[in-house]
Design a protein around this nucleic acid. Sequence first.
DNA 1: TTGTACGCGTTATCAG
DNA 2: CTGATAACGCGTACAA
Lengths: 320, 320
Amino acid sequence: MAGRVLGNYGYYSQATKRKVLEAARALNYTPNVIARSLRTRLTKTIGVLISDITTFFWTTLVRGLQDKAAGSGFSIILCNSDEESKNEREYLRTLVERNVDGLVISPTAGNHSYVKRLARSEVPIVFVDRKIRGLDVPSIRVDNRAGAHEAVMHLIGLGHERIAIIKGIDGIETSDERFAGYVQALNERRIPTRDTLVKEGRFRKDEAFAATKELLRMRNPPSAIFVCNEPMISGSILALKEGGVRIPEDMAVIGFDDPVWASYMDPPLTTVSQPSYTMGMLAFDYVLAQIANTGKDGQHLEDVILKPVLVIRKSCGALR
Amino acid sequence: MAGRVLGNYGYYSQATKRKVLEAARALNYTPNVIARSLRTRLTKTIGVLISDITTFFWTTLVRGLQDKAAGSGFSIILCNSDEESKNEREYLRTLVERNVDGLVISPTAGNHSYVKRLARSEVPIVFVDRKIRGLDVPSIRVDNRAGAHEAVMHLIGLGHERIAIIKGIDGIETSDERFAGYVQALNERRIPTRDTLVKEGRFRKDEAFAATKELLRMRNPPSAIFVCNEPMISGSILALKEGGVRIPEDMAVIGFDDPVWASYMDPPLTTVSQPSYTMGMLAFDYVLAQIANTGKDGQHLEDVILKPVLVIRKSCGALR
DNA sequence: TTGTACGCGTTATCAG
DNA sequence: CTGATAACGCGTACAA
């Protein structure tokens, strides 16, 4: 009976309602969420699996997600895959075991079989930042190709022709698309792409550091570098500093991702900025929409593709 | 029966064990964590309440915590208080409702009654970064006073006398201790403290920006600024740049917190660095120790106070 | 409108 | 060592 008024369902009279409410306060009763979950099979919990909370893009995305979720009484369980599919599989398994109501995933490169099996099951899923093709799972992304294209066009417009790129991890959509944008821009302007100017940075600071060093050792080094994410920007800048290379005089630099510190640098960094906080909020909206809709089916959620914006500061200099 | 072998408790024979295990695999059985939690009152979940995941100190601390927790099968529920005690209370309530096995809290300034009530209840708690006095709750902190003292001594040693400080939020231990270290250093060297050189930045970028602008407007501005956390460093640097102030020639700058970007700045920033990743790991160890010990009591956990280290780079220049 | 009894999937207990 | 059975606390169906 008491359950009825507290849970606010079924029939009850005003009189009993008052009495129950009073008693509840007196005993300072709190409903047991665990028991409720066991009964309803709902946990009011969302699992979030990203690569690394330590980077600007992901922290702010997660913050957006979490803020929005709290507003609807949802809690977030956060996991970092570090781009290892082993971690991905293990974390996903525990998230599912914990009966999360929904999953926000940034899928790693490599074997997708576990994620695919999940997607075919009943759990609501949203992909963020990247997607796996061929699955009916909506995604919140950014037009990476367009962003990269705009960045490289900017460089070309400034008179650069020997433009290097420090790529992310092959097989991750985000990385591949940014590379595609780079190639497309060069092609459009009839600038030959050169393998020697394409470096693997695997989205990691240390590898970008090494890659940049290699570029500097070339007999004919590039005049500009396009660096494909935040940690790699760090590595690259560090290598440039160590090499005594002046930015932008000796080397123009443009980065994908726009961490707060980009504007305090000397010179302030020109970057491609992603609306990560918004992406986090949208991701939550999308899981919630699916959760609300379970059973009813029919509704198909379109991929959301946001536009990154080029923020021009000083690291590419002026027309050569 | 099956529960016995799967849960690995009670008595059972090897024969039945094999059979049960086979059957379990065949049906790919997964134990229901919710039901287990209902029964055992254990959720294998830790609630983490910090001010803002968006800053370097907290991201890396949380990362350490999470990595360690995952190793023991624990999940983390993360909440951001934004230093508002209203948020603190609400988040703590939902965390308790969710029956987390332990709590890692960075208590906000203001009314501590709710946290105190919690501490007197049975939930294992660890404070991080700050503590509330008079409670038998262990904490993982840094010697903020010593860190600040060393920073200001460094400035004094370089010949500075008009040293400004941009403080955090009054009432938060971290902030008060850093201020105390500043005052102590000045006193030790018989340098008078001046109210006009003490500014409130409330740990926020925008307020530090404004505070720095004010300092620059003084007839007789300081020759050095000690900025008490990461977001405020951003604000301060921005104001300095806008004002065309050269670092360190016109103004020496030293910051508390050592975000990755401190070393890419021009000039690279001299900072007081905290071992935040380690602090996160220790925090988990401490909750776990308490969880393992519930009922047995007797064991008292000492506060852990780590030493921050002064990282000297270029933003304070050489001897004047 | 109210009371009650059952089941969610575990773990724990108590006879066999 | 095994099998049956009672809780854990909630939601709900069904009978009153």
